[in-house]
């Protein structure tokens, strides 16, 4: 049998054996059997010594070509096996993707804080700077500089907690207005969020502690239309572009003219429903042009500057926003409630 035939036979045998091999171990044995030191192809190479010098290069080339071919066959099979083995491993690793597991812990900010964040972001975008003032406040800032002298009946609307004759728990965030005007020069554009206190017993719609956000703008030629525009932007940002604002005449000692502001009912979009008591409007905040007397008391020339102020009750807009029926839920801290704001 000449080498050529041998090579053909080796190739044929390998093909047959490869067809029956289905494990990488067996494949490796096969590789050794053919290409290893004692393998059949290696034996042929060794037998080349008996060939004539003329035949050797020719045969050598033939054997090398055969080796490449056989190696390719083995490699191809190896790749096939590896792919199949990976597939089997992946199949074996399959899991029940519907089994429940604990989630990574995630908390939530308080709903009032969530709404405040949105309100602040809206006003910050309009160029308002956040300002703060003390929660325990001088009567002077809480009332007197806001045109609410001692024994003024308008103080009745704000049942006040007193520390002593001169110190109160602030009944609104408006004293921050006075503090700001006394220390800053116009133009002023601030919002002041914070806690306020009124001597109301706790029930579904009252709490002795609640939150407001106050806004104040002082500049030359500020008009009530600018106030309406600012609040319109706020309303649309918070509740949607189909929400309009309506001003109604009202009275606050520190603004003149004053207005109560209604927004289109976001439950019924103005059609009239239970939430808005059929009116299509929801009362949300009070506002007005800063009373010139307040400007003067706070050292701002009312013949040069004008301004507006507004005060928003955060509990109210939070409750409206999320459909919360009972204010007490906001202060109990029950996780079954708080978890709904994740």
């Amino acid at each position: 049998m000449d080498i050529r035939e041998n090579l053909a036979q080796i190739g044929e045998e390998l093909k047959q054996e490869l067809a029956q091999t289905d494990a990488s171990q067996a494949l490796e044995a096969l590789r050794v059997k053919v290409l290893g030191k004692k393998g059949s192809l290696t034996a042929l190479l060794r037998g080349m010594g008996q060939l004539s010098p003329e035949e050797r290069p020719k045969m050598g080339q033939m054997i090398n070509e055969a080796r490449e071919k056989l190696t390719a066959l083995l490699d191809e099979k190896q790749a096939q096996l590896a792919a199949r083995e990976k597939e089997m491993r992946l199949a074996a690793e399959a899991i029940d993707i519907t089994e429940p597991r604990d989630l990574p812990p995630i908390g939530a900010e308080h709903p009032i804080q969530l709404v405040l964040n949105e309100v602040l972001s809206c006003f910050e975008g309009l160029g308002f700077q956040v300002a703060e003032g003390p929660e325990v406040e001088l009567d002077k800032f809480n009332f007197e500089l806001l045109n609410l002298p001692k024994n003024h009946p308008a103080r009745d609307a704000q049942d006040t907690f007193y520390i002593d004759d001169n110190i109160v728990l602030r009944t609104h965030t408006s004293p921050v207005q006075a503090r700001t005007m006394l220390t800053k020069k116009p133009p002023i554009r601030i919002v002041c969020p914070g806690r306020v206190f009124r001597a109301d017993e706790v029930d579904a719609t009252h709490s002795p502690v609640f939150h407001q956000i106050e806004g104040l703008v002082i500049d030359k030629d500020v008009t009530m239309a600018d106030l309406k525009g600012t609040l319109d932007a706020f309303a649309k940002r918070l509740y949607g572009s189909d929400i309009d604002v309506r001003f109604r005449p009202s009275f606050f000692p520190f603004t003149e003219p004053s207005a109560e502001v209604d927004l289109t009912c976001f439950n019924c979009h103005g059609q009239g429903c239970r939430v808005c008591k059929g009116t299509g409007w929801i009362e949300v905040l009070g506002c007005g042009m800063v009373n010139p007397k307040v400007l003067e008391m706070c050292g701002i020339d009312s013949s040069v500057y004008s301004g507006f102020a507004f005060g928003i009750g955060l509990e109210r807009i939070t409750m409206l926003r999320y459909g919360i029926k009972d204010m007490r839920l906001l202060y109990e801290g029950d996780l079954r409630f708080l978890k709904q704001f994740r």
Partner: peptide
Amino acid sequence: LRYAGYDRIPITHLRGETPMGGNNDK
């Protein structure tokens, strides 16, 4: 204004020098 009608107040936007808005450090 209350007899001219608060509904007649148009919507305009603040003009003039725009201060830098934003939260305070705290």
